[in-house]
Amino acid sequence: MNLISASPENSKSTRRLVWTALLVTIVIGLAVVVIPIWIIQPFKPQSQRGLEVSYALRRISPYLTIIASLGVVMLTAWLWRGSRWFLKVILVILALPLFAATWMARQNHFEWMFKPHANLAYAPAHEAAYVDDGDVVLAVQNHGEAVAYPVRLMAYHHLVQDVVGGTPIVATY
């Protein structure tokens, strides 16, 4: 029948279409993760526009990468049958960076570089032998309570949350 005789042609163009969809999906999934990382590099300048784009992408990338991953799994499954072995290898290699990006979209790599203080604890002033007298501290005082945050520690963690004299604060450096 007509349908059967046309089938190899159709199938070929459909496969091409699915391949294209696969590649586009992967590129989008990677881009939404890579672009904000690229823009917000520590020793590079940032424009207001660049920050806006980064913010928007960081917000949507956890959802978008999941959708892209599911799409790629379905498209790959569709392409799998009838693909030669080397094409199957290529399909797997193409999908891996997207899965990595999907995971990365849920990470905060700035907190890999500077881990948040996971064990907040304080020493009485006269027992804090780990601070030299000549070291600078950020000192805060509120309602009779005084706290010192050594600059050495703050230059690494950058922010520490605390309650001082009943007021919740975030110490930043």
Partner: peptide
């Protein structure tokens, strides 16, 4: 922003981040 030595003298009851 003061040195720990100075702060310690002024705030003997204070606490210091570990």
């Amino acid at each position: 922003e003061v040195t720990f030595g100075l702060w310690k003298k002024e705030q003997q009851q204070g606490r210091v981040l570990k």
